[in-house]
Amino acid sequence: MRHGQAAAAALSFCVWSMPALALEVGETLTGYAELQGRQVPLPEGEWVVAGLGNNTIVSGVAGAYGTIENAVLLQFNGDKARGIVEINTNTISVTEGWGTTDACLRDGVLAKLNLYRTAVDGFCYFVTETAQPVTGGTDAWKAAKAFTAERGYAMPQEWLTVGFRLSNRHDILDARYHFDGLELGTLAPSMTTWSPETVVTDPDKYAVVNDLNAWAGLTSELFESGLRGRLAEKLHGRSVPQPLAVLETGTIDPSAVGRASKAARKRALQELAAEGVIREDDLASYFAAVDNTAPPPTLENYYQTLVAKMISFNLFRVSVDYLLAYIVTVSAAVSGYITASIVVTHSMAQIANDLAWDSYIAGQRKDGSELVEFDYIERPVETKS
Score class of each variant (00 low, 15 high):
2 R>P: 15
3 H>D: 09
3 H>Y: 07
3 H>L: 01
11 L>N: 07
16 W>L: 13
19 P>F: 14
20 A>E: 11
23 L>S: 03
27 E>I: 09
30 T>K: 14
34 E>Q: 13
37 G>T: 07
39 Q>D: 04
39 Q>M: 11
41 P>H: 08
41 P>Y: 04
42 L>E: 04
43 P>M: 04
52 L>C: 00
65 Y>R: 14
67 T>R: 07
70 N>T: 01
70 N>L: 01
71 A>Y: 03
73 L>M: 03
74 L>R: 02
74 L>H: 02
76 F>S: 00
78 G>M: 04
82 R>M: 05
86 E>R: 00
87 I>Y: 02
91 T>S: 14
92 I>G: 07
92 I>T: 12
95 T>L: 12
95 T>E: 12
95 T>P: 10
97 G>W: 03
97 G>H: 09
98 W>F: 08
98 W>M: 04
100 T>G: 13
100 T>A: 11
104 C>W: 09
105 L>Y: 14
105 L>I: 15
120 V>G: 02
123 F>E: 01
126 F>A: 10
127 V>C: 10
134 V>L: 15
139 D>G: 04
143 A>R: 05
145 K>C: 03
153 Y>N: 00
153 Y>R: 00
157 Q>Y: 02
159 W>A: 00
161 T>P: 02
163 G>H: 03
173 L>G: 06
174 D>A: 04
184 L>F: 13
189 P>A: 15
189 P>R: 10
191 M>W: 04
195 S>R: 07
199 V>I: 10
201 T>L: 05
201 T>N: 06
202 D>I: 09
210 N>T: 15
211 D>W: 01
218 L>I: 05
219 T>R: 04
228 R>I: 01
228 R>L: 08
231 L>H: 02
235 L>P: 03
236 H>V: 09
247 L>F: 13
247 L>T: 07
249 T>L: 13
249 T>F: 12
252 I>Q: 10
256 A>E: 10
257 V>G: 04
261 S>A: 05
264 A>P: 00
266 K>V: 12
270 Q>C: 02
271 E>G: 06
273 A>L: 03
274 A>S: 13
280 E>A: 09
281 D>L: 06
281 D>E: 14
282 D>E: 12
290 V>A: 02
291 D>K: 12
294 A>D: 10
297 P>T: 06
298 T>K: 06
304 Q>N: 14
305 T>A: 06
308 A>Q: 06
311 I>Q: 07
312 S>W: 05
314 N>M: 15
318 V>K: 07
319 S>D: 09
323 L>Y: 09
325 A>C: 12
330 V>S: 07
332 A>K: 13
333 A>C: 07
334 V>G: 04
341 S>G: 09
343 V>N: 01
349 A>N: 12
349 A>R: 13
351 I>E: 05
357 W>Q: 15
361 I>M: 11
363 G>C: 11
366 K>I: 14
367 D>I: 11
368 G>R: 11
369 S>W: 08
370 E>I: 08
372 V>H: 10
374 F>V: 08
376 Y>I: 08
383 T>M: 05
